[in-house]
Amino acid sequence: MRLFVRYLSILFRSQMQYRTSFWLLSLGQFFIPLSVFAGLYFLFERFGQLQGWTFFEVALCFAVIHMAFSLSECFARGFDSFSTLVASGDFDRLLVRPRSTVLQVLGSKFEFTRIGRLLQSVIVLVWACANLAVDWSLLKLMTLLLMVLSGVFIFTGIFILAATMCFWTIQGLEVASIFTDGGREMAQYPLHIYEGWVRRFFTFIIPFGCVNYLPLLFILDRTEGRDLLYAISPLAGILFIIPCLLIWRFGVRHYRSTGS
């Protein structure tokens, strides 16, 4: 853990050397989800509601997913750009160090400009919460926090899976963006508006449903009994990281250096 913080501070200082570029990029990152959010707002303005969901309920969902996405893009960027590490053979160096590979790859890169994206989603979150008639309890706040955390773990898990593929393919795979970018796009609406196969896939295989649907029901008081189960459902999303890490370890054992 101490090592992780060290990595963080070193990379933060190095990115801060290019201050203008950092702020411009952060600003750009602020506007990307803003345009998506504007689209969502205009759609609600025209249609009024989305299968029984109001604008602010969906906005809450949007904010949670985008917060999770920006956090995991910031901290798990190392896995996202892992293909360069494999292709250049630099991964060999990580293997000989007496620390876990996961930690070192995580520490190889952070993308702090995602703060812009995070800020945008925090604003949406606050706006949504201020307009929703929810009587907040401690448990609900905890659930909200867990939702974000769970989302971070799911996105990170997908990044790790995509990185693991690089052990075999050497290059990065664009297909992975179906589950990262596509997953984000999908999960910004409540899962229940989608078709059965999408719902099943994103509940049991990649558990986005544990972030953007089940706990949301609890927060909005739409559950019928067994509240606690709904409240802690984001924990299932966190578990998603375990098989990902196992597959990663399997991949590391099969790693053959490119030798360059």
Partner: peptide
Amino acid sequence: PVGSLLMFNVVGEF
């Protein structure tokens, strides 16, 4: 290119 480009893109594509 990055900063200004990003903004121009986002607005233009919208």
